[in-house]
């Protein structure tokens, strides 16, 4: 659970996560937007199905993998939000063909 201590004063951005709309600020990474929206886990692992969430926020841990606009296993912490972005949390193995 995260809250805004300071608004960026930048444009509001809306994106969808598994079909549900969330709000973010321009300049947020997708990972930051997910955490700000109270989303606890962004994926489950392909090995055991355990829930995982962003851990390092700097592109090193690869925990924040989500599907963005149809392309899977993207690092949410390295991707800036864009209005209209479609995020899908990943369950286990990423489907081939996406």
């Amino acid at each position: 659970m995260f809250r805004r201590a300071k608004e960026a004063g930048t444009a509001r951005v809306s994106l969808s996560v598994d079909g549900r709309p969330i709000a973010a600020e321009a300049g947020d990474s997708v990972a930051a937007a997910l955490l700000a929206a109270g989303i606890t886990a962004c994926r489950t692992t392909p090995v055991s199905g355990a829930p995982r969430a962003p851990y390092c926020m700097m592109g090193v841990c690869f925990e924040c993998l989500v599907t963005i606009d149809g392309i899977g296993s993207r690092q949410a912490c390295l991707t800036p939000v864009r209005d209209g972005m479609r995020i899908e949390t990943q369950q286990g193995r990423r489907e081939a063909g996406r």
Binding site: D28, S29, R52, A53, Y55, C56, M58
Partner: peptide, 22 residues
């Protein structure tokens, strides 16, 4: 590996980049 466990650096990045605190 539980959701909700992060590095301090991650918290610092969320603070600097997005003004977010836990």
């Amino acid at each position: 590996t539980l959701p909700g466990v992060m590095t301090c650096g991650a918290a610092q990045i969320l603070l600097k980049s997005s003004g977010l605190v836990a």
